[in-house]
């Protein structure tokens, strides 16, 4: 029974949600919105459990004096401040907006900006021309980079008597032909994989997500 009920619910809702996709009737839309609303109800309960595990994890770190345990205090201070201001006054309150704008957003931007350095280090490893594939990747990347920078065309046109704006034309060709066709291949594979996986879940063949095999 512990298994049968979730599997039956999964089958019914799976089939209904597929059919809704093909029906523009307002009743279908209503049903879709209802199901989405039901799923939203679960979130606050799960969030409470999530926050409880976060507190538990950092409390254990402080108690055991784990490496860099002091930073766990920063987590608690941040959480208490945001909750103290956010819950009674709401997210549009000036203090909450200030914290979001001047603390959270710059910290997010800092993490995002690290990406530039990581791209450089990953590219360095990936583009080392040790194999044919890596060499092709290196050549394609160089053309795309030169074609993307306006100065690439400028230099080419100055020093080469033929092929006006060749770097940007070559870049465009690479992006629109080999790159786009391989991306579409991946997208087709992913789409078929999603349908196949969905069928397995709807039919109850794939049930690992329920916790275990049979």
């Amino acid at each position: 029974m512990r298994r049968q009920v979730p599997l039956a619910l999964c089958f019914v809702f799976g089939v209904v949600m597929v059919l809704i996709e093909f029906s523009p009737h307002p009743y279908s839309k209503f049903l879709y919105n209802e199901v989405i609303n039901w799923s939203l109800i679960i979130t606050p309960f799960a969030l409470v459990l999530g926050v409880a595990t976060l507190v538990q994890t950092h409390w254990i770190r402080i108690r055991r004096r784990a490496e860099y345990w002091q930073y766990s205090f920063v987590v608690f201070i941040g959480m208490i401040v945001m909750v103290t201001i956010g819950i009674p006054f709401g997210p549009s309150h000036k203090a909450f907006a200030w914290l979001f704008k001047y603390i959270q957003t710059p910290m997010d931007a800092t993490m995002f900006s690290l990406l530039a350095f990581f791209i450089a280090s990953a590219s360095y490893r990936a583009f080392r021309a040790r194999t044919l594939e890596a060499t092709l990747l290196l050549v394609a990347a160089l053309i795309v980079m030169i074609g993307n920078a306006p100065i690439g065309d400028l230099i080419w046109n100055k020093i080469m008597p033929f092929g006006e704006n060749l770097p940007s034309t070559a870049r465009q060709w690479i992006l629109e032909n080999p790159n786009l066709s391989s991306r579409r291949g991946v997208i087709l594979g992913v789409s078929l994989g999603v349908i196949s996986q969905s069928i397995r879940i709807i039919l109850g063949i794939e049930r690992s997500y329920l916790g275990g095999g049979d």
Binding site: T43, G50, G211
Partner: peptide, 14 residues
């Protein structure tokens, strides 16, 4: 958090 709860149950069963 929902994923966390499902994953806990899954790993526990495994």
């Amino acid at each position: 958090p929902i994923v966390m709860n499902v994953v806990r149950e899954m790993v526990k069963t495994a």
